[in-house]
Design a protein around this nucleic acid. Structure first.
Lengths: 229, 229
DNA sequence: CCGTATTTGTCCGTATGTATG
DNA sequence: ACATACATACGGACAAATACG
C-alpha cells in the first residue's frame, strides 16, 4: 500500500518525526482548502492515506487543535475548525495588534536595504493591481506582510503572527478583491513604510494597526453584502 | 499501582479526555516550578506516575510543545522549554502588544461596574504594597491584569495573552520585587484605568503597552544586576 | 570504535462511546 | 427504544534510534 501521499520515502532522511510531517501535511490540506471547516479528520482514513499508523496521526491532530486549526470533540473525533464571524473579528483585532508591534519594532531596525526591498514589493503590487492579476497580487501581498513581520526581528512575533493569519485563512472568502480595493490597500502599504522610516515608533505601530483594522472592516462589509450578518 | 497522582478516579465523570487531563497536570507541574526549564519529560516515568499508557502522555506533550511550554528533540525526548533572555524580551514585546490591544478594546466597553472593580483592585494592591505582602500583591496583580484582558471582550486575545504570560513564568525570577517598585507599578495601574476611561482608545493602547514595556525594562535590569547579560 | 542500556517511534488489539437504521 | 456498525480512546508490545560506558 504505497500511494502518492505516502510519507515513507521523504522521511528516509529522518530529520523530522512522523507526527511533525503529518502535522504539516494536514495543515497544508486545511490551508489549501482541501479539508474545509467542519470536515472530519478521520483517523483510520488518514492513516491509510498516508501509510502510517494512527498514533502519529492522533499526535498531529492534537497539535493542530492546540494551534486552533482544528478542534476535538471527545469520543466523536477531530474536525477542521469552524470560524464564526465573531471569532474572525477577534482574530483580526489580535492580528492587528501583532502587526502593529511589527511596525513599532521595525522602526528601530529599518535600514536602506530593507527600505528598498519594501518599496520593490509595493511597486510589484502596483503593477499587479493595474494588470488585475489578483492571484499574483494576493501572493505578493502575503509575502510583503511576511517580510515586514520578519524584518521586525522578533521570532516569537513571527510565529504568532502566522498562527493568526493561518486561522484567518479558514474563513477567507475568495473573490472579495477588486482592482480598486487593491490600489487603496497598496497606498496604505506605502504609508506604512513611510511611518516605519519616520523613526516614530508609536506612529508606525498605529499605522500598521490600522491597516489590518481596515482589512477587518472590508471583511465585515463583505460579510454584510453576502447577507451573513 | 495506584498512587496519589492517579487520574483514574477524577476521570470517572469522563468529561475530558485523558490526554487533556494530563496536559493540565503537566502544565501545572511546569508552572508551579516542580518541573524546571530543561527538565526532561520522561514518557515511561510519567505514565507510571499517572497510571496511564504512553499514548495520552505523548499527546499531552505534543500539546505543551505546540503552546511553547516544552520542546521536543527527535529521538531524545521532550524537555521543559528553556527561555533565553533574548526570547524573554521577545515575549515581553508580544505580551505588550496583546495587552495594549486589551486597553484599546476595553476603552470601547468600559462602564461603571468595570471601573469600580478596577479601582478596587488598585486599592487592594496599594494596601498590600504598603504592608509589603509581596506574595499577595503578586497574586492580586495577576488577577488585575487578567480581569483587564477579560473585560476587553475578545476570547482569542484572552487565550493568547495567557499563553504568553505562562511562557514568561518559565523565566520569572523570584525576589525581584521591592516595595518601591510595587508602588510605582501600581501608579501605572491607575494611569491605565484613567486612559481606558478617557475614551481615547489609541492613548489607552499606548498606556497599556508601555506598562508591559516597563516591566520588560525592569526584568532586563534585574538580569543585568544578576550579571546575566 | 563497539556493545549495551535506555528511550523514543511505531503499530495493533481491545473496550467504550456515539450515530444510525 | 433497541440493535448494529463504526470511530475513537486507551493500553501494550515490538522495532529503531540514540547516549553512554
Amino acid at each position: 500500500m504505497t500511494n502518492s501521499d505516502d510519507v515513507g520515502l521523504e522521511r528516509s532522511s529522518a530529520q523530522f518525526s512522523l507526527s511533525v510531517l503529518l502535522q504539516r501535511k494536514l495543515e497544508k490540506l486545511i490551508l489549501d482548502g482541501e479539508l474545509k471547516p467542519g470536515d472530519k479528520l478521520n483517523e483510520l482514513e488518514l492513516s491509510k492515506r498516508f501509510g502510517t499508523s494512527r498514533g502519529p496521526i492522533r499526535e498531529a491532530m492534537q497539535n493542530l487543535c492546540a494551534r486552533g486549526l482544528a478542534e476535538a470533540v471527545r469520543n466523536r473525533g477531530v474536525f477542521v475548525r469552524t470560524i464564526t464571524p465573531v471569532e474572525a473579528f477577534e482574530l483580526y483585532d489580535v492580528r492587528a495588534a501583532l502587526f502593529g508591534l511589527a511596525g513599532r519594532l521595525l522602526t528601530d531596525r529599518i535600514d536602506d536595504a530593507i527600505l528598498k526591498k519594501l518599496y520593490d514589493y509595493v511597486e510589484d503590487m502596483d503593477r499587479l493591481a493595474q494588470a488585475q492579476q489578483y492571484s499574483d497580487y494576493y501572493r505578493t501581498n502575503l509575502e510583503f506582510h511576511d517580510y515586514l513581520v520578519r524584518s521586525a526581528g522578533n521570532k516569537m512575533l513571527v510565529r504568532e503572527y502566522h498562527s493568526f493569519v493561518d486561522r484567518l485563512h479558514l474563513c477567507r472568502m475568495r473573490g472579495l478583491v477588486n482592482s480598486g480595493a487593491l490600489t487603496i490597500s497598496n497606498r496604505e502599504h506605502a504609508e506604512m513604510i513611510d511611518a516605519a522610516a519616520s523613526g516614530n515608533n508609536q506612529r508606525a505601530q498605529e499605522t500598521f494597526f490600522r491597516h489590518v483594522a481596515r482589512a477587518k472592516l472590508r471583511f465585515r462589509s463583505s460579510l454584510e453584502e453576502a447577507g451573513l450578518t
